[in-house]
Amino acid sequence: MSQTSDIIIIGGGIAGISAGARMAADARITVLEAEDAIGYHSTGRSAAIFIRNYGNATLRALNAASEPLFMQPKGISDNSLLTPRGLLYVALEEHLEDLEAILEGATGMERLSADQAVARVPILKRDSIAAAAVEPGAQDIDVDRLLQGFAKMLRQRGGSIVNKAPVTAISRTNGTWTLQTPQGSFSAPVVVNAGGAWADEIAKLASVQPLGLTPMRRSAVILPAPEGHDVTGWPLFACAGEGWYCKPDAGKLMVSPADEDPTEPFDAWPDDMVLAEGLHRFEQAVTVPVTRIERSWAGLRSFFPDRTPAVGFAPDAEGFFWLAGQGGYGVQTSPALSALAADLCAGRTSTLPDTVVQALAPNRLIKS
């Protein structure tokens, strides 16, 4: 099998699928996914919540630019992809500076007393709370509906998704990239590297300078709801010092140690010691013990050194486009980043502020 497109996208996570859907309005698109199905790795393991005040200034601008699509997902879904949840930060004395850093430049956040925090989440230990704050506008994201909606848009616009197609070799001749996979060869003048944790490895295959991506493992467990409590209406609640976070999930509690352990790219699984340490930190903040883990899993969040994604053409390889390093922000920034990627590949001016576009440019990460 040999197939020619205008743009080949490597990676069928939310980054690659959303970008492909946007680009398919102007070009012939092929998405190559290594696994049996799209969204297998980080996308399918996301905590899935829209937090406007999450990340650095560049990411917060992307969050704000993405919100309208989640609320009115024309062409993706018939109704909003968001459901009210809320986000509560609690701080011990040693985390007061961390909470202030979260509040700095934030919009729509409110400070709370310890009593107000406990009123929202009754299992919190009141005496250990030195300060608290809430983002009432944080909302759950229907990730599957988002991903499948973008995939449907991509196909309706004539694009294709090829599963079980890990890229094994990349070459470029006479302005055309050729990619080898178990499903055959694929050629296009433009390649989009949306390979998630594998993005630097993909660059190396293409003889493009890697940008210093670090995959980091993030673990989580499902716990039964505390006896006597209906957790359905609770907000996501988290340690301001990033020692743990907890989100109601289908009548149970999803708890993460908020770990970020650097690793090689792989099909991640949780480390028992990391889980035990994180659950211990969680237990110190609540009045109920952890007695049973129903399920555990892990995923990879990949960051560049400045914790900002790279979106744009590589300065050292014509037709090689970076769309990587979304860290833990990939799902909630996908509307803005996919639109930016489509604009840049089509030679259009982005609607994002130029300062944001420049902050995302890959050339900032190239070592001289």
Rank of each mutant, 00 (worst) to 15 (best):
Met216Phe: 00
Trp269Val: 14
Gly278Lys: 02
Asp306Asn: 03
Trp177Arg: 07
Pro257Asn: 12
Leu81Cys: 03
Pro262Lys: 04
Gly241Ala: 14
Gly86Phe: 00
Tyr245Ile: 06
Leu69Ser: 03
Ala37Gly: 11
Pro265Phe: 12
Ser338Leu: 01
Pro122Asp: 09
Ile141Val: 15
Tyr89Ser: 01
Val356Leu: 03
Val221Ser: 11
Ala25Tyr: 03
Leu205Ile: 02
Ser5His: 14
Met216Val: 05
Met273Asn: 15
Leu279Tyr: 13
Gly299Ile: 00
Gly75Lys: 04
Trp244Ser: 07
Glu227Ile: 13
Pro262Val: 08
Ile123Lys: 06
Asp98Gln: 09
Pro224Ala: 13
Glu294Lys: 05
Ala341Tyr: 10
Gly158His: 09
Val90Cys: 13
Gly251Leu: 10
Lys367Asp: 09
Ala346Pro: 07
Lys152Trp: 13
Ala276Cys: 10
Asp230Asn: 14
Asn79Glu: 12
Ala151Asp: 08
Ala65His: 04
Ala19Leu: 01
Arg307Gly: 00
Ser296Tyr: 01
Ala114Met: 04
Asp115Thr: 02
Thr83Gly: 06
Tyr89His: 12
Asp200Asn: 14
Gln284Lys: 10
Arg217Glu: 08
Ala359Ser: 15
Cys246Lys: 03
Leu99Asp: 06
Gln332Glu: 12
Thr308Met: 01
Pro362Ile: 12
Gln332Asn: 04
Glu67Thr: 01
Leu211Asp: 00
His280Ile: 01
Asp259Trp: 11
Lys367Cys: 10
Met153Phe: 00
Thr43Glu: 01
Gly16Met: 04
Ser185Cys: 14
Cys345His: 03
Ile170Val: 15
Gly228Ser: 06
Cys246Glu: 07
Pro210Phe: 12
Ile161Gln: 09
Gly330Cys: 03
Arg28Glu: 15
Ala37Cys: 10
Gln139Met: 09
Arg45Glu: 07
Arg60Thr: 13
Ala25Lys: 12
Ala130Arg: 08
Asn63Arg: 07
Thr214Pro: 04
Ala341Lys: 02
Ile29Met: 02
Ile222Ser: 08
Cys345Phe: 03
Val286Ser: 04
Gly11Ser: 08
Ser42Asn: 08
Arg292Tyr: 06
Ala25Thr: 13
Val331Ser: 10
Leu81Val: 08
Thr58Met: 02
Asp78Phe: 02
Thr43Pro: 01
Ser113Ala: 04
Ser256Gln: 12
Ile202Thr: 08
Leu59Met: 10
Leu96Tyr: 07
Ala203Cys: 02
Ser171Glu: 15
Thr107Cys: 07
Thr291Trp: 05
Thr173Trp: 02
Pro166Gly: 12
Arg217Phe: 05
Ile366Glu: 07
Thr176Arg: 15
Ser207Tyr: 11
Ala317Ser: 15
Asn79Asp: 15
Asp354Cys: 10
Gly251Asn: 11
Phe320Met: 12
Glu100Met: 00
Asp271Trp: 08
Phe320Gly: 03
Arg172Phe: 11
Ile17Lys: 00
Ala203Leu: 09
Thr173Asp: 15
Thr232Asp: 09
Arg157Pro: 04
Glu104Pro: 06
Val356Pro: 01
Leu300Arg: 01
Ser128Ile: 14
Met273Ala: 15
Ala64Met: 11
Pro335His: 02
Ile129Glu: 11
Ala132Leu: 06
Ala240Met: 08
Glu93Phe: 08
Pro136Arg: 04
Cys345Lys: 03
Arg45Lys: 14
Val192Lys: 12
Gly278Met: 09
Asn56Leu: 07
Asn53Asp: 13
Met153Thr: 03
Ala117Glu: 09
Leu32Trp: 12
Trp234Cys: 05
Asp26Ser: 14
